[in-house]
Design a protein around this nucleic acid. Structure first.
Length: 1052
RNA sequence: GCCGCAGUGGUGAAAUUGGCAGACACGCAGGAUUUAGGAUCCUGUGCCCGUAAGGGCUUAGAGGUUCAAAUCCUCUCUGCGGCACCA
């Protein structure tokens, strides 16, 4: 790769001048294109010594306020070390970097400091890239990706269009936080205690039309595929929980008015159809059927319902939880009929039933569900138990003896009731584990009894333990005014109990059947009768894509009123094809073909050849006080022509979610130079800048919003529009011709099919190793997987998982807390790189602990690492000076072992112990008075190179200068990774441990051959005074011998 | 509440098919060297008893399995992360 002999630094004397050395090598590496991956040439390289492509990807950063902090550097360095290691092993490694600079995070900061997001992006890009150049990572700087670059987000928009065309993007209602005073939508984090953070008014929930991606269509595959992924386990578990698969049944109920006439149907979802115990139905306040109820119920009740629904809307979900989950609700006046008992079930409305969960409607079985039980108790609804226990013993807890807090904890596992003025709880036998007994005992303020199913007392729990003496127990009951026939009374009169391994009763054909089997049987029965249908439900919700914000890719959709009026949409002409795709991919829960078309009436994607829809530079980019997207105030942006009928139409003015930008970026990196992207190829000539210029020169808004905008290149009021808006370029002022050319180029490129080169993608993807923070366990990693699966199903990608191997790194904290500006504990790596050098900082960060664990940043330890770097420097210089070929035997053998350990440790990202091994070896060299030959120095430098790229490169060249053949390559970073000699790492002598009764009494060193021989070791041990002393008079009963390791005299 | 992960010296940590607990560092103490140093080098450093030799104790706590447990099992406590009125 590096064809010329690199020029080494001038002699510096003994001190390691990290600043000068780092600067010099950065320049040389860039000139020699050391870190530029052979993206296209890798196939031919494959046949030579290189082992093939390795795509080493680190989650790209979103540029924040402070620039890179040391936590970022920790993560990037850990990833880079592995990349460098793989390259030394002979892989062609591609390690790209970019910026996730679009989105709310960057926008908020820009807003805070009063800078236009476009200008802010420019500032942070410069700052981040400067910093990222200094940390010693092997980034391929010829292939960066910035999500706010039109050359990139054109393809983000393209992706949206494909989603739409494949029926995976749709418009639907979503609940958002709405401040009626500010008339704006608020993000969740802008809602403080249910009130608007700006004006203090109570925030309402509103249903607004939003764009969604139908990620739920992939819920099953997202779950199933987890099995085949090599990911940090806890991230997999997090995804599993988030997807939340559960098997259940949807049961359809006929709803009747009081006089028995039909009012419609409601579908309830349940995983546990205890239908003989169902005594009422509950709908969420947002359930569509509520509006039907309002029509058929009497005026007074309708008013009550309206009031209740309005009230629940004013309370945020967080607020609701804070109110202690007290049950509220309102009766609808309507009834359903229980299929199996034929009883009337009153239909209630309550906010404890959530809209997004199941079908937003439940059949309540208060005897067997704590929430239903609460609700039934609150409103005096009937409770019927249909489960009895198949074992004997129960605990009876008199509530007057426990705290109310504890009583609440018991709720899930106990039967509650009231008898003769005493409240009590009965714990089901299944639940009466040791844990419960201990729990009860700890909380106890008085004695508690066991009862048996036949009513006899089994035992009493007291503070001191469990009394099982029946007489004492009977006495306990008598003293509290109860007979010994307590339990059967309780079971019938207060039947709430936990669902365990009970047997069914009062359940017709299910009687006597174990609970779990009864549920399956019920589902069979309901399906047979046509009352219900088994379904697999998921916790996962569809991905809300739209944002009423400015700093993101405009959603590339056009709405035509004329077409909407006649029910025409893009699907009118493409429906058959779409539905074909849908059915081929077995996406359940799809709207019927007619409905898809109707739901999207009037909607058209922007034609691909017209992408990108440029985000115009506007002055009034702040999120509106009037509740609409900033772009919605720009007629010149949204006015366009309908792609189908040519009538006047409007663009979507929402932008897409940041997570869409980052959901596909890994596909772009290897292909940024591919022929499908003119803009990127010309980037170095400044074309990309010109493109950004085109962002600037867009028609100004009317009015004074522009006056205060200090942004670069803000056009004067009234200047003509430049950009591709409405698909028609508009002439710009003088000097904009060139920009037009670029945009034309971009547009032509956009007519190409894909954002990536298929051949390159086939070679380089999926990503070989993805490294990133566990905080992205769910969102980013889930979205990327979804997008990849969709692209795969459309036949555009040959794989369906983007990151077969994902490694979650730990976090660097400072003084025990996460770094954040508000805490004032952000550590800037620049200061430390300036003072100690990038290598010392890299080493320190990696030495602080295991890479998946993170660590606490401490200055003093940093000093220590700096000292070791100095020792290595002097050790190497001294070896180069002496110029001996061979090391001492001890040093050489130890180095062989070090190769073995460092190789294994890096492979498992145990960087801390790899560094410790290198230190141990340098300590040995020092102990041996620097008996280090150049051949071994060359090996050592290669082992250290992934961690300390600058130091090792400098020493590599100084060693190379001393004579031909000293170092095997021009750059240490293109040298072959050293192999160890298996014969040399075998121990010639081992330490054998001698124990007496498992206690260490003596150790001695023996030749390996002797140490594995029982008699030899035993003979040696017999000679030991210490062993004799330890054994004393005792006679050994047994001798344990582990060859090569241990001898244990057992005297017991 | 549910799920997951963790708990080892003054500090970061090492040691996991069960086999010398504390590697490697930081810090601290003492010493050497240097005009000086944010320099370098040497020695010591888990706790307790002891001048020492030596002995005892020790991996959050309790119990268990084993010749042998930081490691395996049971329970408890503490901390961190995710989910949470999920039907």
């Amino acid at each position: 790769m590096v064809s010329v002999i690199l020029k080494p630094m001038k002699r510096q004397g003994a001190r390691y001048d990290h600043t000068a050395i780092e600067r010099a090598w950065r320049a040389v590496w860039e000139k020699e294109r050391l870190d530029v991956a052979a993206i296209s040439g890798v196939k031919s390289a494959k046949r030579s010594r290189r082992k093939g492509p390795f795509y080493n990807l680190m989650m790209f950063p979103y540029p924040s306020a402070e620039g890179l902090h040391v936590g970022n550097m920790y993560a990037f360095t850990g990833s880079d070390i592995y990349g460098r290691f793989k390259r030394l092993q002979g892989y062609e490694v591609f390690e790209p970097i970019g910026l996730d600079g679009f989105g709310i995070h960057s926008e908020n900061y820009a807003l805070k400091i009063g800078r236009h997001p476009m200008d802010h992006a420019e500032v942070t890009e410069k700052r981040f890239y400067e910093q990222l150049h200094t940390i010693g990572a092997m980034y391929d700087w010829t292939r960066t990706v910035e999500t706010y670059d039109p050359g990139y987000y054109r393809w983000t928009q393209w992706l949206f269009v494909q989603m739409f065309k494949h029926g995976l993007a749709y418009r639907g209602k979503a609940e958002v936080n709405w401040c009626p005073s500010c008339k704006t939508v608020l993000a969740d984090e802008q809602v403080i205690d249910g009130c608007c953070e700006r004006c203090g008014n109570i925030v309402e929930k509103r249903l607004l039309d939003q764009w969604f991606f139908r990620i739920t269509a992939y819920a099953g595959k997202l779950l199933d595929n987890l099995k085949k992924l090599d990911w940090t386990e806890k991230v997999k578990v997090a995804q599993q929980n988030w997807i939340g698969q559960k098997q259940g049944i949807e049961i359809t109920y006929d709803i009747l008015t009081n006089d028995g006439s039909s009012a419609g149907e409601v579908v309830c979802f349940t995983t546990t159809p205890v239908n003989f115990a169902a005594t009422f139905l509950v709908l969420s306040p947002e359930h569509p059927f509520v509006s039907r109820i309002l029509q058929v119920t009497d005026a007074q009740r309708a008013a009550d319902i309206r009031r209740y629904v309005t009230k629940t809307q004013q309370v945020s979900r967080e607020e609701r939880e804070r109110q202690g989950k007290k049950k509220t609700g309102v009766f609808s006046g309507l009834y359903a009929v229980n299929h199996v008992t034929r009883e009337r079930l009153p239909v209630w409305i309550s906010d404890f039933v959530l809209t997004g969960v199941g079908t937003g409607a439940i059949q309540a079985c208060p005897a067997h569900d704590a929430r239903d039980y609460d609700f039934a108790r609150t409103f005096g609804l009937p409770i019927r138990s249909v489960i009895s226990f198949d074992t004997e013993v129960h605990i009876v807890v008199l509530k007057k003896f426990v705290s109310s807090d504890f009583s609440a904890r018991l709720q899930k596992i106990a039967v509650y009731g009231e008898d003769r003025g005493e409240e009590y709880a009965v714990v089901a036998p299944r639940q009466m584990s040791e844990k419960v007994v201990r729990m009860v005992r700890n909380e106890l303020t008085g004695p508690h009894a066991f009862a048996q199913a036949d009513g006899t007392v089994a035992g009493v729990i007291t503070k001191d333990g469990v009394l099982s003496n029946p007489d004492l127990c009977a006495e306990f009951f008598r003293s509290h005014g109860y007979g010994t026939d307590l339990w059967p009374v309780l079971a019938d009169r207060y039947p709430f109990c936990y669902i365990g391994d009970g047997l069914m009763r009062q359940s017709g054909f299910l009687n006597g059947m174990p609970f779990a089997r009864a549920m399956q049987k019920t589902m069979d029965y309901f399906e047979e009768k046509g009352w219900g249908k088994r379904v697999t439900a998921y916790h996962l919700r569809d991905w809300l894509i739209s944002r009423q914000r400015y700093w993101g890719p405009p959603i590339p959709m056009i709405f035509c009123k004329e077409c909407a009026a006649v029910g025409r949409s893009w699907f009118s002409t493409h429906e058959a094809k779409v539905m074909n795709i849908v059915s081929n991919n077995d996406m359940s829960g799809w709207p019927a073909s007619k409905r898809l078309s109707a739901a999207m009436a009037g909607w058209y994607p922007v034609p691909e050849r017209d992408l990108p829809v440029i985000l115009p530079r506007i002055g009034d980019y702040r999120p509106g006080d009037d509740g609409v997207s900033p772009l919605a105030k720009h007629r010149e942006f949204y006015e366009t022509a309908c792609p189908a009928c040519g009538a006047k139409a409007v663009r979507e003015t929402d932008v897409s979610d940041t997570f869409l930008d980052s959901s596909w970026y890994f596909l772009r990196y290897p292909s940024v130079h591919s022929g499908s992207n003119v803009a990127e190829v010309d980037r170095k000539k400044g074309v990309s800048d010109a493109m950004r210029g085109s962002l600037v020169a867009v028609h100004p808004s009317n009015g004074p919003a522009w006056a205060g905008d200090a942004g670069r290149g803000t056009p004067k009021k009234g200047s003509p529009l430049v950009g591709i808006l409405g698909g028609t370029p508009v002439a710009g002022p003088a000097g904009t011709d060139r920009r037009m050319t670029v945009l034309e180029q971009t547009r032509r490129a956009a007519s190409l099919e894909l954002p990536w080169d298929p051949a390159i993608t086939k070679t380089w993807l999926p990503v070989s190793l993805y490294t990133g923070g566990a905080e992205h366990s769910v969102l980013h990693l889930m979205y990327s997987r979804f997008v990849t699966m969709a692209l795969h199903d459309w036949g555009l990608l040959p794989f369906d998982e983007p990151f077969p191997v994902f490694y979650a790194h730990g976090l660097i904290i400072k003084d025990g807390a996460k770094m954040s500006k508000s805490k004032g504990n952000v550590v800037n790596p620049d200061d430390y790189i300036g003072r100690y050098g990038a290598d010392a900082l890299r080493l320190y960060l990696m030495f602080t602990g295991p890479f998946d664990q993170g660590g606490d940043f401490r200055d003093s330890a940093m000093e220590g690492m700096s000292r070791w770097v100095g020792r290595v420097w002097r050790m190497a210089l001294s070896a180069i000076e002496k110029h001996s070929k061979e090391s001492g035997a001890k040093v050489e053998t130890a180095l062989q072992r070090t190769i073995q350990k460092v190789t294994a440790d890096i492979e498992h990202r145990r960087y801390n112990t790899a560094i410790a091994a290198l230190m141990t070896w340098t300590n040995l060299v020092a102990d041996e008075n620097g008996a280090l030959g150049l051949a071994d120095l060359s090996i050592f430098l290669r082992l250290l190179a992934p961690f300390a790229p600058f130091l090792t490169e400098e020493l590599w060249h100084r060693a190379g200068e001393t004579g031909p053949g000293i170092v095997p390559s021009a750059s240490v970073h293109r040298a072959p990774w050293p192999d160890y000699d298996a014969a040399k790492v075998v121990d010639t002598s081992v330490t054998v441990v001698v124990q007496v009764d498992g206690k260490l009494r003596e150790t001695f060193s023996l030749p390996s051959a002797g140490a594995v021989d029982r008699e030899t070791v035993l003979a040696r041990a017999r000679k030991s005074d210490r062993i004799a002393h330890a054994l004393g008079e005792a006679k050994e009963q047994k001798i344990i011998f582990i060859p090569g390791k241990l001898l244990n005299f057992v005297t017991r």
